[in-house]
Amino acid sequence: MSKNKEVILSVKELKKHFDVGGGQIVKAVDGVSFDIYRGETLGLVGESGCGKSTIGRTLIRLYNPTSGSVTFKGVNVNDLKGPELKKFNREMQMIFQDPYASLNPRMNVLDIIAEGIDIHGLATGEERRKRVVELLETVGLNADHAERFPHEFSGGQRQRIGIARALAVEPDFIIADEPISALDVSIQAQVVNLMRRLQKEKGLTYLFIAHDLSMVKYISDRVGVMYLGSMVELADSDALYDEPLHPYTEALLSAVPIPDPEVAKTRERIILEGDVPSPINPPSGCRFRTRCPKAMDICATAVPEWKEAKPNHFVACHLYNE
């Protein structure tokens, strides 16, 4: 993605720490920086507990950051109040991970999707219903579904309702927090293809958070790799998958299934030793060093510098520091 593109969201040194009592602090996100360009999809990957979802929730202000800044369309989102905050809440929406927990079971589909329309005063009466029916048809459902309740739908249908709800207020930017992880594989492809089509039609920008590396490559223009609260690598999708620089990224990609058995035989699987350290007490220096097959002495004492090792390919690793 060219640097000449318009930056719609800029994150600088973002930290989100949680006090879990007893003087212990969980450093869920600890100094992450990245930009997202208008119209692109930035994929965010990493193991469970690495801070991906916490970043998404902090960007949209479900969490307040411990420090750092989030700038959306040139404005620091944490300074927003009143009408400016309401405008921001319309422009940035979220698709949640669990399609079973994210829909109110007491509301029918019409009211679930129209909730944002009501809050922002976008339509009333028959126009309100017409907009909801259009949204349902946009995501592959029909007008009859408007009067039903969430328990009457499958997981894939519920996630489509969640997408329709996010689209109802005509946002510019959508955070998709593992939107396919709770779905069957056959349904996952349908939902991702739907999101790609909607992006083209409506000019949307996505932050796509997921575990599935093959799906992230399919939908993303660029991919960022998280480990224990830090960003370790960020690059164009093809560059990251074809030539990963960070040892952690190499290990993640070595676990992605390859459909060709002959190619799969020749690939070396990298098995990481040990468990992910606790975010309450992360290792000194490089956080990945306790599991890294290429760890050096300097990795224990110095935090690796975040640098552009190749054009538009950023990495935090002592292998690339002078």
Rank of each mutant, 00 (worst) to 15 (best):
N193I: 08
N76Y: 00
E13H: 09
A264I: 04
E233M: 08
I175H: 00
G224K: 03
D111M: 03
H120T: 15
S69Q: 12
C50M: 06
P247V: 09
Q24N: 15
P171N: 12
I161K: 03
I25K: 13
G82T: 01
E137A: 15
H211V: 10
S53H: 09
R197S: 14
A189S: 15
A146D: 00
K16M: 13
G224P: 07
N4Q: 14
L319W: 11
Y63K: 08
R131G: 02
P279D: 02
M92T: 12
H313A: 05
N281M: 02
G116E: 13
E233Q: 04
N89R: 15
S2V: 00
L245N: 10
E152L: 09
L110N: 07
P247Y: 05
E91C: 01
V223G: 01
F88I: 01
M195I: 03
E47Q: 13
R197M: 10
S230H: 09
P304E: 09
L136E: 11
R291T: 00
V315A: 09
V191L: 07
G46N: 08
G74Y: 07
A182Q: 06
L252R: 04
E273Y: 03
E308C: 12
K217Y: 06
G274I: 02
D212N: 12
R291A: 00
Y63N: 14
K3N: 13
A264V: 08
N312E: 15
H246C: 09
V169L: 04
E147M: 10
R269D: 02
N104G: 11
E91T: 02
A143Q: 14
P65V: 11
G162I: 04
Y63R: 11
R131N: 14
I55H: 13
I55N: 06
L9Q: 04
K200T: 09
A101H: 01
